[in-house]
């Protein structure tokens, strides 16, 4: 079954934005912690393609936001590099270099309560990217585009929202402002850190439809970070599963959900309420709550050696605790890092 080529990935051409073997370790400060580090992201490669939505799933603390922030140049990678349009991005130091980068790459933050400045009105918040990237000149034109952005994210009537302060909005409304701000730059890549988890279902659908339209019509490349692997299936083209800073599985969205190959992906799917799989819903609580056998997410300060999932893994073998498994590639474009697929050790 394993194949050597990378058939599906090649089919989508050159990636727009790419992380190559990026590593992030946060040094710890404080008494007794000198020299210790949080191993937040282990060597990870991730490519975003024009017109495709890549979902990044994983439980809390798995390093999703850290990876997205590295792609957005908010955290310099400890190792590895970020490439935009095939060219390595030197940590853009100059104001012009940064502006050029953020003209292409925009991010929506996870927490809408901290991502909007409390002292500015929405009019100002949305006018800055329009002005800085030269999309609007003149007051009337600026106002028209701001209203248009507000309408696109369903903040209607837009002319009432435009003069509000962020603190006058709900969490969901704030998040839509943050999305509008990211879209204002008209980027080629959108890094969405759980962009819709604060929104209620009807608006969530509207926003996802909006992003889907942007993908189809303007070829936007989207990184969609979420906890909801079952939901990602309907929205994303590709799903990548991150566990404790290690990418463990990746592949076309349908394939990953229908035929999860990594035990952690299976665990995620079993604990996710998926309307299509009634049985899973009933099994879920047992699987998630059974800490005796599955345990907690590992400490990232002193992470388990080898595959970090092995302390929780039902298929764990001795080799799992010594080395991270190599990539096993499947014909349908799915790949997985798991010793149970490695032929020499598989029995």
């Amino acid at each position: 079954m394993p194949a050597s080529a990378e058939p599906v990935l090649e089919a989508h051409g050159e990636p727009v934005l790419e992380a190559r073997d990026v590593v992030k370790r946060f040094p710890l400060h404080g008494p007794g912690q000198h020299g210790k580090e949080v191993h937040a992201v282990e060597p990870t490669s991730l490519a975003l393609h024009a017109g495709r939505i890549t979902a990044l799933v994983g439980e809390s603390g798995s390093g999703k936001s850290t990876l997205a922030r590295m792609l957005a140049l908010a955290y310099p990678p400890t190792e590895g590099e970020i490439r935009l349009d095939g060219a390595p991005v030197k940590q853009a130091r100059t104001a012009r270099g940064k502006r050029a980068y953020y003209r292409q790459v925009q991010m929506v933050f996870q927490d809408p309560f901290s991502s909007l400045s409390p002292v500015h009105r929405l009019r100002y918040i949305l006018s800055r990217p329009l002005q800085l990237h030269g999309h609007a000149s003149g007051r009337a034109e600026l106002e028209r585009q701001i209203l248009d952005l507000l309408n696109r994210v369903n903040l209607t009537p837009a002319d009432q929202f435009i003069d509000k302060f962020p603190h006058e909005l709900s969490g969901g409304q704030r998040q839509r402002v943050a999305i509008a701000r990211a879209l204002a730059a008209r980027p080629k890549v959108l890094l969405g850190d759980e962009p819709v988890s604060m929104l209620d279902v009807s608006i969530r659908l509207d926003i996802l439809n909006l992003l889907g339209t942007l993908r189809d019509d303007e070829g936007l490349a989207i990184l969609y970070i979420t906890h909801d692997i079952a939901g990602a299936r309907y929205f994303a083209d590709e799903i990548k599963v991150l566990y404790a800073g290690q990418l463990v599985e990746s592949g076309p969205a349908d394939a990953v959900v229908e035929q999860p190959r990594h035990p952690y992906t299976r665990l995620l799917l079993e604990s996710a309420p998926d309307p299509d799989r009634e049985g899973a819903l009933l099994d879920a609580p047992e699987v998630v709550d059974d800490e005796e056998t599955l345990g907690e997410p590992p400490s990232l300060v002193d992470p388990p050696a080898g595959c970090r999932f092995h302390p929780r893994c039902p298929l764990a073998k001795p080799v799992c605790a010594t080395a991270f498994p190599p990539r096993t590639q499947f014909d349908d474009g799915q790949w997985v890092h798991c010793w149970s697929y490695d032929e020499e050790n598989y029995r």
């Binding site: 957005a72 908010a74 104001a95 940064k98 502006r99 953020y102 003209r103 925009q106 991010m107 933050f109 927490d111 901290s114 991502s115 909007l116 400045s117 409390p118 800055r128 990217p129 800085l132 990237h133 943050a178 701000r181 204002a184 730059a185």
Partner: peptide, 21 residues
Amino acid sequence: RDFVTAAEMTGESRWGVITRE
């Protein structure tokens, strides 16, 4: 704070971040 990072990500210069945020 995220809103400062967000201002940087809209392409605001350092001086812009200092004076505007």
